[in-house]
Amino acid sequence: MRILLVEDDPTVRSFVLKGLKEAGHNVDQADNGKDGLYLAIGEKYDIIILDRMLPGGIDGLNILETLRGQKNNTPVLLLSALSEVDDRVDGLRAGGDDYVTKPFAFSELLARVEALGRRGHNDSAPETSLTVGDLSLDLLSREVRRGGQKIDLQPREFRLLEFLVRHAGQVVTRTMLLEKVWDYHFDPQTNVIDVHVSRLRQKVDKPFETAIIHTVRNAGYILRPTQD
């Protein structure tokens, strides 16, 4: 993917830049709001990563508002040291698509970037079914089949699986699952998400020969279709 990174802190910038490049992305960078805005308007990106606080009079929110004002719908991920809930809401209200608070784990950022990039592609027609490998989800009847065999899932388990399938091949973090599947924005002390994923695995992976839901150490989970 072609990504624009606007971040003034050189350490964070080079850290993110290196990580994104290693993950196979093509990254342009800017260290101030003015250059950032210039690039964001002039070039075509799949994703823009914006720091909220930038030197030079133009901050992340200004860039975001200008882009949205020009009907530019490139997915934008906001990066900020402001963790207050209100700040997050402000950022999302201004047209941001996701929000990551500093300090962050790179795996979290990468997972969210890739989730956003994917979303940008299939925003077209609403699907009625999802298929990954031998797993298929009927979104209308809420029916799940794997290799022709029907799997009974609770409504929440269905949503969890649906999220994983929509992001098949991508790492999704625990925080992402808590935010997107449960719509919760707090930091649970215990392993609530792990338990729910492991329950899902009991139903989706255990009765079958190969597992499709995998744990990614220090990051989260990935749903990888079986090769057949």
């Binding site: 449960w182 919760y184 215990t190 392993n191 609530v192 338990v195 729910h196 492991s198 329950r199």
Partner: peptide
């Protein structure tokens, strides 16, 4: 949400 962790 917590029923699962409790059971675990």
């Amino acid at each position: 949400l917590y029923e699962a962790s409790a059971e675990d």
